[in-house]
Design a binder for these strands. Structure first.
Lengths: 346, 346
DNA sequence: CTGAAAGCGCTTACAG
DNA sequence: CTGAAAGCGCTTACAG
C-alpha cells in the first residue's frame, strides 16, 4: 500500500507538498509539481479516503435510508439519486431498513456525521424524536416522498393524486368505486390515507361516498391486493371501478378480475398509481408520479446544501402528477360516456 | 460532536479504557465498564467510523460495482446483496458504472483498500489489466454473473440456458427460430453470444441452423427489441418462434407481435430469459435464473472471505436454470404437439 | 486492569 | 514556495 510518505520520499519533498499538489493548491512550483506528479504516477498512488476524511472531517459520501424491499417504485428513486450524484465526488452508501422493527437504530448510524456528509431519506416519515435527532446532528438532509417538517423535501400531493384518480373514474360515469390500499409496515407511510381522502372528496363532490365494504387495505403486494379484490368483486354489489394505491396492487386487481372472468374495462375499470414499468406493459391506466426525478432532484438539492454548508430551508417541492390513460379504464357498463364529464348525471 | 475523549473525561478514565469497553475487550473491571457505559449513554456517544477505519485499516464497508441502468434484473441482484449483508456490520456503497466509457476508472476507486474491505462485481467482465489490478490490490472480490478467472463467482451456464430455451421450442415443433440479443455496451457482457451458442447447438442437433436473417442484436431494451422483432416478423419467411436474450426484450417481441396482429402463441412462440417480475405479469414463458439468490450468495461468500482473510478460491458456482412455462409458447401452427417431445419428428 | 503513547494517512496553519 | 509539526478520533502494544 503506497502512502503519501512514499510519494514524498521518491519526489524528494515533504508530505505537505505532496498533499498540496494532490489538492491543486496553487502555491507549488511548476517544477516540484511535475516531480510529485511523476512520483504519483510511477507509484500508482491514490490517497486514502479515510485518512482524508478524518483530517478534513468530511467523508465525501452520502447515505440513503430506504425501505428497499417494500416497493418496486423505490428502485426508480434510487436510480434517480445515483444519476444526480454521478458527476459529484460523493459515494452513495445505502442503508436498507427493511422493516419497521429496526426503528430504533434507523437513524442512529447514518446520522453520524463521519459516516456520511449528507442524508437522503426515502419514503420514511421520521418520528418526532428521530426528527429531533436528525436536526441535532446537523447533517444536511433531504427527504423524498415523505411529509417531514423541517427538511427540504420532494413529494407529491397524495390527496390531489387520489382526487385525480377518482375524478377520472367519475368522469367515465363510475359511482360505486372501491379502494385498495396499503397498511403501513411501520415506516410512517402516509400515502394510502391521503389518497383515500382525495377519493372521498371527489366522491363527496357528486354526493357519493366511499362505502366501508369497498375500502380495504392490506400489506403491500400483488398477491394480497388480488385477494382483497377477489372479496370485493365477489359481492353482489361489487364496485364498477377500483382505485388501487399502487400499480403493483392494481395489477393484483387485474389478476382477480381475470380469475373471475370479468372484462376490464368492460365490467370493471382499474386505475393504479406510480406508473412503474409494469404499468405500461400491462396497459394499466394510472396516476403517474416522477419517481426517477424525485431521486435526481433530491440528490442535486443535497449537493447544493453540502456546497453552501447551509442547513437547508425546509421547502417542500411538489412534483407534478398526471393521469396516464391506457386500457384498464372505460365508461361504466350501460352508461354512455358524457361529452362533458363535469356536467355530471342528473 | 462528542468524542472518545469526552467520554473518558466524564468517566474519569483514559481513552484506552473507553476503547476497550466499546470493543468488548475482556480486561476491564465490571465497575469501570459500568462507569464508562454510563458516560457513553448520557453523552449519546457513537465512535467515529472513519477514525476507527484508519486505525484498524479496515472500513467495514463493501463496494458493489454495477452497471445500474442497463437491466432491470440488476436490481434484484442488489436486493439479494443487501439481504446477504443485512446482519453484518458492513455498509454497502454502490459504484454505478453507467457506461462502458468510464472503463478506465472503473476499478480505480473501489479498489482502494481503504474505501471498501471487499468488492462485489456485478455483470461486468474485467479486462485482463483490470483483473490484474484487482488481484494486485488483494482486496477480496466476488463476481456475480460474469466469467472471470481468478475470483470466486456466481453464474449461470448461459450456453445451457440457450439450449434449454431452444429445446423447449423445438419440443413444440419449432424449427425456424429467431434470436434477439444484446449488444455489449462495453462491459464485457458475454451472455448473448453464449446463449446463442446454446441455441445453435440445439438447432444443430436436429439438423437445423440459426439463419443469419433471424439473428439480430441491438442495444438492450424493450423498444429496440420491438423494432428488431418487427423487421424479423414482417419477412415472408418469418420465424415461428423467437428466443429473446432477456424478458425485457421478449416483451418487446410481444409488442411487435401485437402490432402485427400476430397471435401468441398461435402464430408465434416467444421465450425470454431471467424471469423478472414483469414476465409473470404478462405470462411470458422464460428461462428462470436466480437473480436475487445470486446477490445473496455472493454477499455471504464475500463475508466469509473477509472473515478468513483468505484471498478466496477461484470457484465458480453455477446456479440452476429452469424453464418457466407460461402462456407465450405453444405448438407450431399446423403441427400436433408430440406426446413425447424428445421423440422428435421423423 | 489501566494509562500514556505511538501510529493509522492525510490536511493545514505556522514558520521560514 | 515548502518543510516540520500538530491534529483529526480512534486502536493497540507496552509498561506498570
Amino acid at each position: 500500500m503506497t502512502t503519501i510518505k512514499d510519494v514524498a520520499a521518491r519526489a524528494g519533498v515533504g508530505i505537505g507538498t505532496v498533499s498540496r499538489v494532490i489538492n491543486d493548491h496553487p502555491s507549488v512550483t511548476a517544477d516540484t509539481r511535475a516531480r510529485v506528479k511523476d512520483a504519483i504516477a510511477t507509484l500508482d498512488y491514490h490517497p486514502s479516503r479515510v485518512a482524508r476524511a478524518l483530517s478534513r472531517q468530511r467523508s465525501n459520501s452520502i447515505a440513503v435510508v430506504v425501505p428497499f424491499f417494500t416497493h418496486t417504485s423505490l428502485t426508480e428513486r434510487v436510480r434517480g439519486i445515483l444519476t444526480g450524484l454521478a458527476d459529484s465526488p460523493f459515494e452513495l452508501v445505502v442503508f436498507n431498513v427493511d422493516h419497521g422493527g429496526r426503528r430504533r437504530e434507523r437513524f442512529a448510524r447514518p446520522t453520524r456525521r463521519d459516516l456520511a456528509d449528507g442524508l437522503l431519506i426515502v419514503s420514511i416519515t421520521p418520528s418526532p424524536e428521530e426528527s429531533q435527532r436528525l436536526h441535532d446532528s446537523r447533517i444536511p438532509t433531504v427527504v423524498i416522498d415523505a411529509d417531514t417538517d423541517g427538511f427540504p423535501s420532494f413529494c407529491v400531493d397524495d390527496v390531489t393524486g387520489g382526487r385525480m384518480a377518482a375524478e377520472h373514474l367519475i368522469g367515465l360515469g363510475h359511482r360505486r368505486i372501491g379502494f385498495i390500499g396499503d397498511v403501513d409496515p411501520g415506516f410512517g407511510f402516509t400515502s394510502t390515507p391521503q389518497r383515500r381522502v382525495g377519493l372521498i372528496q371527489a366522491l363527496a363532490a357528486i354526493g357519493e361516498e366511499l362505502h366501508p365494504e369497498l375500502d380495504r387495505v392490506g400489506p403491500h403486494g400483488r398477491a394480497v391486493a388480488r385477494e382483497l379484490a377477489l372479496e370485493m368483486l365477489e359481492r353482489p354489489d361489487r364496485p364498477t371501478a377500483i382505485f388501487a394505491h399502487s400499480d403493483t396492487q392494481a395489477i393484483g386487481v387485474l389478476e382477480a378480475s381475470a380469475q373471475l372472468g370479468l372484462d376490464v374495462p368492460g365490467d370493471l375499470s382499474v386505475i393504479g398509481f406510480d406508473d412503474i414499468e409494469a404499468a405500461e406493459l400491462v396497459g394499466l391506466t394510472t396516476v403517474r408520479q416522477p419517481l426517477f426525478e424525485s431521486g435526481r432532484l433530491a440528490a442535486v438539492r443535497l449537493l447544493e446544501l453540502l456546497d453552501n454548508g447551509a442547513p437547508g430551508e425546509s421547502i417542500t417541492t411538489m412534483l407534478p402528477l398526471e393521469i396516464v390513460d391506457r386500457r384498464t379504464t372505460g365508461p361504466v357498463a350501460g352508461v354512455v360516456r358524457q361529452a362533458h364529464p363535469t356536467d355530471g348525471p342528473e
